[in-house]
């Protein structure tokens, strides 16, 4: 079955950029966008062992009379076919349940804080919660639409990085775009990381689709991130540690996303890589 990407449409110029990004992603890997035009600022997503209430900021409800038309025009331009989601179930009045069986979901960096407040350095708490609980990877877009022409995987050797690698390989296979890998060496040497990939039985796939694997031993992560192509889609895994740890030490996801303005595809801890 064709994979589906879930997109919440915001009827503002920023929302237009986000939708353009989603549509570009869909066209690149051949998936089908499912667009939700919110009717209230809140909705619930029931995941396997979690329920998340997403509180959208008020700009999502801008000019409800034109939003469907705007979305359709953008979809038509992209030449894709899109489906539009009408919620079937409501937990309470004005509180629809949004299904969670999608293959991807697109979020701007924040969906609950006012969009004017966000520059680069912050992923909103709701987006973070979705990443933590979802079985699908989340596409976090850059503020302005930018086509990506290559894929860069951040590989840190953990179980989740392997999931990100699987995801990156899949995107590379489906989009036919060049694939690179970025590793900031923290322990051992390049061989340790190669072995981790080989142990997961992914080395042959990497050799088939991957182009370049950059290792950085010196310098801080932020310095080295300049080496990442400006038009690359970043694929990374998010590790599911607690909020306190994030605030105290800052997660690597946070450091990467606050440095690089690129589009990110984040595989959360619950993401299960689909074989094939």
């Amino acid at each position: 079955m064709t994979p589906k990407l879930f997109h919440i449409f915001r009827n503002t110029p920023l929302g237009r950029e986000t939708l353009l990004q989603s549509l570009y992603f869909c066209r690149s890997i051949g998936c089908l966008p499912e667009i939700y035009i919110p009717e209230s600022t809140r909705f619930l997503m029931y995941f396997e062992n979690d329920v998340t209430q997403v509180d959208l900021d008020g700009s999502y409800l801008t000019a409800p009379s034109t939003s469907r038309g705007h979305a359709e025009a953008l979809v038509l331009e992209s030449g894709l076919k899109a489906t539009y989601l009408t919620p079937k179930n409501y937990t309470a009045h004005g509180l629809p349940d949004i299904p969670t069986h999608y293959d991807y979901m697109c979020c701007p960096r924040s969906i609950s804080d006012l969009s004017s407040k966000i520059g680069l350095g912050h992923i909103g708490p709701r987006v973070r919660r979705i990443v933590q609980a979802a079985r699908f990877p989340v596409l976090i877009t850059s503020p302005v639409f930018k086509a990506w022409n290559s894929i860069t995987i951040f590989f840190g050797g953990s179980q989740n990085a392997l999931n990100a690698l699987r995801l990156g390989l899949r995107i590379a296979r489906q989009s036919g775009k060049p694939l690179n890998m970025f590793t900031q060496i923290e322990k051992g040497d390049a061989e340790t990381y190669r072995k981790a990939v080989a142990d997961a039985d992914l080395l042959s796939d990497w050799e088939r689709y991957g182009a370049e694997w950059q290792f950085f031993e010196k310098g801080s992560l932020e310095e080295n991130l300049y080496a990442v192509a400006h038009d690359a889609l970043l694929v990374l895994g998010a590790y599911g540690h607690g909020l306190i740890k994030d605030i105290m030490f800052g997660s690597k996801m946070e450091r990467i996303q606050s440095t690089l303005p690129n589009n990110l595809l984040i595989a959360g801890p619950k993401y299960t890589a689909v074989k094939g």
Binding site: R42, Q53, A92, H93, G94, L95
Partner: peptide
């Protein structure tokens, strides 16, 4: 808290 009104038992 951004929750709807109502007494909650049906929820």
């Amino acid at each position: 808290v951004n929750e709807g009104a109502g007494h909650g038992v049906p929820e």
